[in-house]
Design a protein around this nucleic acid. Structure first.
Lengths: 208, 208
DNA sequence: GTCTATAAGCAGATAGAC
DNA sequence: GTCTATCTGCTTATAGAC
């Protein structure tokens, strides 16, 4: 009796967890319902009982993943610490995050090339992109002469590039340059010093 | 008679061209032999006559695409012009190239996550990666005090990040930040100034 | 809610005529 | 070398018992 009515949230959770792993690493076309079912410890029929079709499940994963990805981009800017420290902290955090979750940005990039219609279904651009007050912050710093005037979009794109690209290109870079995984890891650690240096030097030169 | 024996190279070319377009935009799993056949103006049976199976065709595309992608990374460094100009020129070229061919790096990144075994089959790392003499060049510049000491890998990864990432993330960035295609294009043009500035400032500070 | 069994559809691959 | 027709196998999805 108890087990009959045990809340589906448990199973649903297991499904979502399994689906996420599979979709993020294999992509929509490469993912197999069978693999998701196996990984969740259930069978295919149950997947369809919960989500009716593959696409629905995929959209759920998009929604869920968005919640992890975007807040990270903006949240740190609200803290009230010196600007340079903020930049440094954001970069270090974002490099770490990207190294731990390289599948996430790769997933979104691919979705938007291959299934953009599903992306818009899932997105809720409430407070994700508080890029607007980032421009304010930059303008303030510039006004007081500490940095040069820069466009917030160029600023954030530069940082995202430097943080995310090496992570998602890990296998490509290692193959291309014949680097061991250890060597690569070491270099990524170094980049937590290098990238802030690059960005801050850019902001600080020619400021008037 | 003439048409009977017309060299298959023509058809083969059309197939490869169609396959490339489809594989690069849809990926291996998303690509359909039917679509490739249609796009090449032939039928599925002929695809198999030429390449026997999908995977073989895919490997051909990898090989071919490698030839476009990697030489671009290294070729410019052999020219004998002032270092700063070399850097600027490389960056501007690579940004342009990435904007025109965003599918190419995205393709390789995905292949190496999802079909790495096929990548090694296709790769011929002869003269692709002349990263070694790039380190020499950097060392020479550093020795004469014009730039600081930097690791060639960190240098090239930094540049590739700044050039490639914005291009492959175009749809993601535009959706996230609600940018029009025109606005985005405009920003990418600006980056042909910004990115060299960023890189050169990094190299020139603290050099002793 | 969860399972087994099965249907339905599709994509890759082959047979065989021309 | 190119085509039409067909097969085979896999994948998503449903039916129906428990």
């Amino acid at each position: 009796m108890k087990n009959e009515h045990k809340d589906n949230k448990d199973t649903e959770m297991k499904i979502l967890q399994a689906a996420r792993q599979v979709f993020l690493s294999k992509g929509y076309e490469g993912a197999r319902m069978q693999e998701i079912a196996d990984s969740a410890g259930i069978n295919k029929a149950l997947l369809h009982y919960y989500f009716r079709k593959k696409e629905n499940l995929f959209v759920e994963i998009i929604k869920q993943a968005l919640g992890d990805f975007f807040p990270k981009i903006t949240n740190i800017w609200v803290k009230d610490i010196p600007f340079d420290d903020r930049v440094r902290q954001f970069i270090v955090n974002y490099i770490s995050f990207s190294l731990e979750n390289p599948d996430l940005p790769r997933f979104f990039i691919n979705v938007l090339y291959q299934k953009p219609e599903l992306f818009v279904t899932g997105i809720h651009l409430k407070d994700y992109v508080k890029i607007l007050n980032l421009q304010e912050i930059l303008d303030n710093e510039a006004k007081s002469g500490r940095i040069k005037q820069v466009d917030a979009y160029q600023f954030i794109i530069t940082i995202l590039s430097l943080c995310i690209f090496p992570a998602i290109s890990n296998p490509l870079l290692r193959t291309t340059f014949k680097l061991s995984e250890d060597k690569f890891k070491e270099m990524m650690e170094e980049r937590k010093e290098i990238v802030p240096e690059i960005v801050l030097n850019w902001l600080h030169i020619n400021n008037k």
